[in-house]
């Protein structure tokens, strides 16, 4: 199974993981609020989705309707398209492109455009400030993320995702070859999905930011898109850093699922652990600490690759 036949598997997998992420987030919230936690948390995302589907779509005076609706669709489609290069089982991916990691990076960068359009469209102050915030945030995380992805490509000597997985067969995972890169990847991936400490464009201090004027089905598509971005970022960490399907005893596809769930749980929990970062201060940290750190990591990895021959 490969190519077109893997598309349904990818879509169903994404949907289940989005559901899992939303339920898990609701479980963490219930634990902190001291509510009893049960299997009913699994119904929370469904209930929220149903409520949004029944609600009227909202609009504003003089919106840029085309860009606004297009932005919402973009926030949803970009992560799904980026996911086509992710291996679903040993040797199975929708498209194992020779430039796989470049495809993923380029697609996810389109999230900027989508989120900014959602902020720009409604002709309203808070969404607009939220949209600008995301551009500023991208300025902070995108450079370190790009360097990290290059680091992994350098280790494997290839931009093809299946080659990167093969490069970790029987050896150390790239998370151990390049721990700083792995850490920066997780941080940037959270920022890319504007999740948790990086939820600045949809922040509570902006009355909801870019999604302040979204109602009904638009809000649902936007929210699902955001979860999908988080899921795809977690899933992509598995082939890049955690050895893909490699692991003892269990079959490869199960290893991929287990590793993806663990990374996803880690990212989801960040929301309930840390306060939101202030962008002006994170910007400084990104350029003064993260970029030099990732560059040093890149040089160290380069030296390792040269020495190994």
């Amino acid at each position: 199974m490969s190519g077109v036949t893997a598309i349904p598997v990818l879509l169903i997998g994404l949907a289940v993981l989005v559901w899992f992420a939303a339920s898990l987030s609701s479980v963490f919230g219930a634990m902190l609020a001291g509510r009893p936690v049960g299997l009913t948390e699994l119904a929370v995302p469904g209930r929220g989705a149903l409520r949004l589907l029944l609600k009227e779509r909202s609009s504003t005076p003089m919106p840029d309707a085309l860009l606004w609706r297009l932005g919402v669709v973009l926030v949803f489609t970009v992560p799904v398209l980026a996911a086509v290069v992710i291996p679903l089982a040993p040797g199975v991916a929708v498209a194992d492109l020779p430039v796989g990691i470049v495809w993923w990076t380029a697609l996810m960068a389109l999230l900027w455009v989508g989120v900014f359009m959602v902020g720009w469209g409604p002709n309203s102050a808070y969404p607009m400030v939220g949209g600008y915030r995301f551009i500023a945030q991208a300025l902070a995380y995108e450079m370190p993320l790009a360097i990290v992805v290059i680091t992994v490509g350098l280790l494997a000597g290839s931009l093809r995702v299946s080659d990167i997985v093969a490069g970790q067969e029987g050896g150390l995972w790239y998370a151990l070859w390049a721990p700083a890169a792995f850490f920066v990847y997780l941080m940037s991936a959270t920022a890319q999905a504007f999740w948790g400490p990086f939820a600045t464009p949809i922040a509570s201090d902006l009355a909801g930011g870019v999604r302040a004027e979204l109602g009904g089905v638009d809000r649902l598509v936007f929210t699902v898109g955001r979860y999908a971005a988080l899921v795809v970022a977690a899933a992509f960490a598995v082939p890049l850093f955690l050895g893909g399907h490699h692991g003892p005893l269990l079959p490869g596809w199960l290893w991929i699922i287990v590793k993806t769930l663990l990374v996803l749980a880690l990212l989801v929990s960040a929301r309930w652990i840390w306060p939101r970062l202030r962008l002006d201060r994170f910007e400084e940290f990104a350029w003064v600490v993260l970029i030099p750190l990732t560059l040093v990591q890149l040089f160290v990895v380069g030296a390792i690759v040269l020495l190994r021959g």
Binding site: F28, G29, L32, A33, G34, P197, A199, A203, S204, D205, R271, W272, I273, W274, P275, R276, L277
Partner: peptide, 16 residues
Amino acid sequence: FLYVAGDEGGALIAAR
């Protein structure tokens, strides 16, 4: 204050 600062978890604990 914690809710506005984006610490949803801390805000839930304080409210509880």
